[in-house]
Design a protein around this nucleic acid. Structure first.
Length: 480
RNA sequence: UCCUCCUUAGCUCAGUUGGUUAGAGCAUCUGACUGUUAAUCAGAGGGUCGUUGGUUCAAGUCCAACAGGGGGAGCCA
């Protein structure tokens, strides 16, 4: 029976003393042959276990190494030392799992994030990743909490999908056909999928949006929160081949309703983490602070992590149109002095990272919602504005990360939608099921997509997206 | 995919204009120490210098290709 154990977080929080308790966890350090720092993942704070001289045999003490799993029972007492309020005076210690100190790669010292990424299966046991993944969980919970309280229905959209026409990116093929060249072929040399598992070509999903729209046409407000796959050869600090995405879709919403929801949503989940994971965020803030000190003065951020999150919660996001953004950029000294690699000269061009960063980090110094982009640079399903040039799109740009949300009011007028699909060479036959939303009881609706790992990055302050998902998948990397 | 930097002990790094036996701190091991906080002190072990090929009397050091990693860009969330 293991249920008698008390979690270290609870034990430390209560500050009660003079009672018997059992703790279980993994040894961080064993100092002076006397003090064990034990961690069980409930908090970054360790419980100090005091080992009385002569109370345990030498052989047992030798097995208490960094990484070993132990069970310790004893009396919780007020600590005689300075670093903690309470500690456990052990009367019994059982080694549940040995850890060979010569082979265990984690040491009681600072490790680089790059090294820890190579041992992703063990990095959970560090303070940094302990905090990151507790915060990740809090955000995940807060997302379901937010939408549930608003009466949204969570929809599980398919992970294997037949449509490959969404244009959201390169897809991973799903097949059971042999890969040695013996798969059946059509006359033109392409693979014949008639005898494949699904009887047709299938892929891993790049977005649940189209299916989500179907559900919104029945439930009104829905959201999806699931894994998404992109086979893009992207090697950056903010892209993954497998990531989690939140995609709400709302009937009877226009672009402004959509923006209001997205802003309220982001603020809610950040506030939830601030209220429930303060200790972890403070640890991450300190970590980031030390990292920033290594940088030259002009590259350091003006705000600490906690400060930044509070600022985002307490201020309105800046809302401007694409056209206004182009004006601001064109008139900026930065542009006039030709400091942009891509000079802003005319309306219609897509904004580069440097431009987005300038708007968010230099000009407004807060999250920015950009709206009404030229239709040429946006997806087919976005609603065309009356000017004939722009669509009702909105992107939310966050400092340090860039695009965190992409959304739009959807084109509910079937003639306009089909016309746009043809212009963009999107096969209407394949998406006939999607067009049914516009044939039977179409209504104005809107939605957006938010990359979960990007918001986790923003809230934890981690610089590389590979460090906010337990086992990251990216080009040339699918270990563990 | 493109640009750029990097790869030396388990980890983080030093290694001079190419020149004998490649160093440090931490970790590990052995011993000491009973109120430590990434404990401390003494000692010990630990390296095909990313891989392959080339230049040279001589390569950790110079050149090339490849692999892996960091940063930036593109694609995007």
């Amino acid at each position: 029976m293991f249920s008698t154990r008390i979690k270290i977080k609870e034990l430390l929080l209560s500050e009660k003393v003079n009672y018997q308790a059992t703790v279980m966890g993994w040894v961080r350090t064993f100092r002076n042959n006397q003090f064990i720092a034990l961690n069980d993942g409930s908090t970054n704070n360790n419980i100090q276990i005091v080992v009385a001289l002569g109370a345990f045999d030498e052989a047992t003490l030798k097995r208490i190494t960094t990484g070993a799993c132990i069970k310790a029972t004893g009396e919780v007492i007020a600590s005689l030392g300075k670093g903690q309020k309470v500690e456990l005076k052990a009367t019994a210690i059982e080694v549940l799992g040995d850890s060979d100190a010569e082979k265990f790669p984690l040491q009681p010292k600072k490790h680089s994030l790059e090294f820890l990424r190579e041992i992703a299966h063990l990095r959970f046991r560090t303070n940094t990743f302990g905090s990151v993944f507790r915060v990740r969980h809090a955000l995940s919970f807060a997302i379901h909490d937010f939408f549930t309280k608003k009466g949204f229905i969570g929809i599980h959209t398919p992970i294997i999908t037949a449509s490959d026409a969404e244009g959201a990116g390169e897809m991973f093929k799903v097949t059971t056909l042999p890969l040695d060249g013996s798969a059946p072929k059509n006359e033109d040399g392409t693979i014949n999928f008639k005898d494949d598992f699904f009887g047709r070509s299938t892929n891993l999903t790049v977005s649940g949006q189209l299916e989500g729209e179907l559900a919104a046409m029945a439930f009104g407000n829905i959201y999806t929160f699931g894994p998404t796959f992109r086979a893009e050869n992207s090697n950056t600090t903010r892209h993954l081949a497998e990531f989690w995405m939140i995609e709400p879709e709302m009937a009877f919403y226009d672009l402004e309703d959509n923006m209001n929801l997205a802003e309220e949503f982001i603020k809610h989940i950040i506030r939830y983490a601030m209220d429930n994971n303060r200790e972890d965020l403070e640890f991450l803030a300190q970590r980031l602070d030390e990292e920033e000190k290594q940088k030259p003065q002009n590259e350091r951020s003006e705000m600490g992590l906690i400060e930044k999150l509070e600022f985002v919660i307490n201020n309105n996001f800046e809302r401007i149109t694409y056209t206004e953004a182009i004006e601001i950029l064109r008139e900026s000294n930065h542009n006039k002095k030709k400091k942009f690699q891509y000079i802003i000269d005319k309306w219609g061009i897509d904004l580069q990272s440097e431009h987005e960063r300038y708007l968010v980090e230099k000009h407004f110094k807060k999250p920015v919602i950009l709206t009404n982009y030229p239709k040429e640079i946006k997806a087919f399903y976005m609603r065309q504005n009356d000017d004939g040039k722009t669509v009702a799109a909105m992107d939310i740009l966050a400092p340090g990360i860039g695009e965190i949300v992409g959304g739009s009011q959807r084109e509910e007028r079937i003639d306009k939608l089909v016309e746009r699909m043809k212009e963009m060479h999107i096969p209407t036959e394949e998406l006939d099921w999607y067009l049914d939303t516009r044939r039977f009881g179409a209504c104005p609706h809107a939605g957006f997509g938010l990359g979960f790992e990007r918001i986790v990055q923003f809230v934890t302050g981690m610089g590389n997206i590979r460090d906010v998902i337990p086992f990251p998948r990216y080009p040339k990397s699918a270990s563990f």
